[in-house]
Design a protein around this nucleic acid. Structure first.
Lengths: 251, 251
DNA sequence: TCAAAAGTGTTCTTATTACACCCATGG
DNA sequence: CCATGGGTGTAATAAGAACACTTTTGA
């Protein structure tokens, strides 16, 4: 077994991409690193996997330690392993993603994470390590997964309007959707329960409130479905904020 | 950096799930292990990643070293990392999958791989390590990916009949498909070129031969599509060969 | 009375399903 | 002449796309 010793000098980490939705905006939870490397930089909440710890368990533990979030369902997305991605040595990282209700959780950053904060996904850039790339891969995964299973239960408050749900889909898919077709489709799925309540205190006609039917939701999670609506015109793509010139010339 | 030393005692490997198609049967390439652990057992072709080697590069190298296969496009699927999956220590493995034309390649097993051989996927069981689980995950990925992008160029001979293509889809999806609907759909995609040739020497009406239009094929690979045809009755599920009793009682 | 967002239906087009018989060849 | 797999069409249904005006509320 001597001949293999040289291989046992590497480490692995897990990194978590936690998506939330708030104020019509898709967000991702980042920590400000409290230690080297990349001290003081924003990064995905991640850390080394313990020698006697399964990968999935490590992802859960690390998330809780860094942000205080517990009982979050995490799904493995992809492993990143270029040679020099970590200054301390050979470290590959397994990326996980999840969706949570922002208002539902209190974020409590640990000392390793000096701060933990939600960032609008469009504004994130210049993260530590290769975390920009990891975030992009997980966002793409989210976009895909939205087409074949329900999303929203994890991201919206318990009572929500159809417009809020539509805005969530639009934020994830980075498109505009037709209001009537969206409603027709989502209502025909028998996934929403009409609460017979309406918004209050809004300066316009108050919207009906809905909640998800948990049984149907679970069922769709297990079986999948096909949610495709032709995209309207594309929203501005992620990243790279436009200059004023570009905005002007894009008319 | 001392505090991190304990993390740098792990290793990682890559494992390749190579699918092929032959005699109407979906196959997977396995090696017979020539060294410990699991010496003499069938396993996926995989090995340790070198300290200075990117993951994707390692997958390519390992595949070539063990089987002689070169220039195979490999796609990362999932990472497996339970604590005791490898008897030598903490080793996580990154699984890759690919599709190739069996007849197109000559398999040349290395000394580490005493043999390399194609196995019908339904008959594979009892592989080394957690490779049964890895194979299953990759097979599921293949099933999924078949619905959103073309498959066959990598698995079929340059000239093939529509029935052969249909059998390929049926083998992957483990279903039966309606002949007329399959043909209508696949032909309407403008993906196949009719060669104006027919089979020879078959004891029935000879079938027309087709080839893929490489341009369209690339285009679909890049953009994806939606290939869904309602499944006929399910074929027997993978694994667990039926006993005679079960066969008898299933009438 | 105005601004702002909610809510609502129909027509057109396209895709999917279900389904059964004749054809060409080799043995 | 028979066994084998090749090849073909249509009608019914379902799903998706396009599209504009009225309603309700608070300010």
């Amino acid at each position: 077994m001597n001949e293999f010793n040289e291989y046992f000098k590497s480490a692995f980490t897990v990194d978590n991409v936690i998506f939330g939705f708030d104020e019509g905006d898709l967000k991702v939870l980042l920590i400000k690193r409290g230690e080297e490397p990349y001290q003081g930089k924003w990064a995905l909440p991640g850390y080394f996997v313990y020698p006697n710890e399964d990968l999935d368990a490590a992802a859960k533990r690390v998330l809780e330690e860094l942000t205080g979030l517990r009982n979050v369902y995490l799904e493995q997305v992809k492993t990143f392993g270029t040679v020099n991605r970590h200054p301390f040595g050979r470290v590959i990282t397994v990326a996980y993603f999840s969706l949570i209700k922002i208002s539902h959780y209190t974020i409590q950053p640990s000392s390793i994470a000096r701060k933990a904060k939600w960032h609008s996904i469009a504004e994130v850039d210049g993260l530590a390590f290769d975390h920009d790339e990891i975030l992009e891969a997980c966002f793409n995964r989210l976009k895909w997964s939205v087409r074949s299973r329900p999303v929203g239960f994890e991201l919206l408050p318990p009572k929500f309007t159809l417009t809020e749900l539509q805005h969530l889909y639009e934020a994830i898919l980075e498109t505009d959707l037709d209001k009537r077709n969206f409603r027709k489709k989502i209502l025909s799925m028998d996934l929403l329960i009409d609460l017979d309540e309406t918004q209050e205190g809004v300066a316009h006609r108050p919207a009906r409130l809905y909640r998800f039917d948990p049984k149907r939701y679970e069922q769709f999670l297990a079986e999948g479905f096909n949610f495709e609506l032709k995209e309207g015109k594309k929203k501005e793509p992620l990243k790279k904020k436009q200059t004023k010139e570009e905005v002007a010339s894009s008319n």
